[in-house]
Nucleic acid binder design. Structure first.
Lengths: 185, 185, 185, 185
DNA sequence: AATGAATGAGAGTTCATTCAT
DNA sequence: TATGAATGAACTCTCATTCAT
């Protein structure tokens, strides 16, 4: 009798929040997109904030397990890891030209919806840590790797913004190329 | 009997929209911050969208006149121009740790509030053009300058995001340093 | 497989309704307090109104059998009967400082939830009748006994209200003392 | 352009809350009874709780100024004062057979809506103090007057309950008569 | 008998906007 | 121009109830 699973709800919510933002997306929007009535939606998440927390946590876990983890595959070269990383990441970020949910939600909410800050920080810390690990594998010093990792994340997030502004996925791809140029080997 | 000028309203609205985002900021918030009643506010702007258009246009003009223009001061070196650019920009972006209104509004609204897209594109195009002009002055080819300009804007916008995530203005400063390293002279 | 008996549900419901009132107490509150899910609750009572009817009837019967009946124990003196009455009544009314369910529900619902009126009337009629019987046993005329009985019930209900207002069970006790002073013997 | 005054809103709210109780009366009910839309109602009171606070405070003041004050008119006899008190009070309490708002709201909310407790306590304290003053004027000791005052309030509140249960205003009148019998002169 | 999912109505509240004064 | 009142839609969320499993 269950019309939908929690996982599907989360996936649909990711899509909507990513495209429309947190405040523009109403519980009704979300419910209808899930084929549910507004009221039924509260069976799964008992507040909009709780839903968003669920969404952010789920997405964070997904990145850790499926994407950031690629950085720690010491079987292949540093650069190859970064390439596999980008390969995995690209379709997610370019879909609907909606970019990165974490990035979007950060700029929309971080000064005002304090509840999400810790997940957001954790997400970006893990992302930077993953990149740092790759750069160390490429032979960088700890200090240097740290800096390059942060720079790379920023370039990608900046590129995602420009990608959305100019509706051109090529911008993201070039940013990835640019990051790959930072490698020695 | 006029309590406030349009310019002041715009300035106050910039602050609020930058911190709280477009959808979280209500007309009431804005009116009160301007010392007006909700009703009076509509004498100055007859819709929220119109206000936002005004805000974005005004800010765009301000940047063109006061900041992007620094790029075209051919009296000083390319690098010095970039430094003066950053000097002017920093206090604006770091205030309240709220970053760049255009960046914030982009990630919040661009997929859904189409009306703002053209100003946003114009703003970023002009920014990139200004940077490109500087890099050409530094001796880059047109192609190279174009690429470096885009990269620099992206790095700065990415840095602003990280600055807000980790509540650390140093992140922005380092990004500026990093951009300055791109100069040959 | 039955998790709970109807009697237990009724007892728990009495507690909740007495403390929180009819409208503030949701079916969910009741179900959870009974260790059931909302859905399961409807196996025992198929509407909130039906539950309340059950609760009021059960409580009415309980009073008739266990408390009002004390008035008809012609083996002991009138005053002694009244004392035994109060002794039985006090712990019920003072528990959680929540007073008398019938009194509470009366003032909350009687003008608007007509369905409960007849049980409420029956309850108070029986209470007054019991007191009247005691006062007749004390030697009062029928008329006089009637009046004293009504007065006594009113004083007690009034005292329960003040007890709740000032959070002081002593108020109820004094009202009982005051009623006992009405006895000749 | 104003459709209604705050005073009228309060008066209408008193009526509705008294008859239907706090939780059964929706903001929509109240707005419509005032000839307003739900949304417009928030122009006058910005929450249901705030409205209720306003209602209770206004009513408390009204009683202090118009009714309790009668107790302090030392020009006439104590008993005459009590009679004038009852005369003023009766039409209020018997209207719609809805009794005393403070009494009703007490039994419905006091264990659960803590916000109203202090006004409720103040109201009943003032009422008792007024009665006490009358009984002292009748020649009672302080102690005795105190007790009689409390008893009288309880009897009246108890009588109001029975009045509503049996839909008979005569019950209130008899309670008043009974209170008047407590006077020596 | 128990459950968890679904529902639709309605709760309290906020919002952008309009308009008479 | 300024205001305060009014509006209706939309928002988040709760509720009593139903029903397939």
């Amino acid at each position: 009798m269950q019309k939908i699973t929690i996982q599907e709800i989360v996936r649909i919510s990711i899509d909507l929040f990513r495209k429309q933002g947190y405040n523009r997306t109403s519980m009704n929007d979300l419910a209808l997109a899930c084929g549910l009535q507004k009221g039924s939606f509260y069976h799964y998440f008992n507040s909009k904030e709780a839903l968003m927390q669920g969404v952010l946590n789920t997405l964070h876990q997904y990145y850790k397990n499926k994407i950031f983890s690629l950085a720690y595959n010491d079987d292949i070269s540093a650069k190859a890891r970064m390439e596999s990383f980008f390969l995995k990441q690209e379709p997610i970020f370019t879909q609907d030209l909606a970019g990165c949910l974490f990035g979007n939600i950060t700029l929309e909410t971080i000064s005002v919806e304090v509840e999400f800050r810790s997940v957001i920080q954790a997400f970006f810390s893990d992302w930077i840590a993953a990149f740092k690990h790759i750069f160390i594998a490429d032979g960088c010093t700890d200090e240097m790797a740290s800096q390059l990792a942060k720079q790379s994340v920023m370039e990608i997030e900046g590129a995602l913004m420009m990608m959305r502004v100019f509706e051109d996925v090529e911008i993201l791809r070039q940013a990835c190329v640019s990051v790959l140029k930072k490698f020695k080997n």
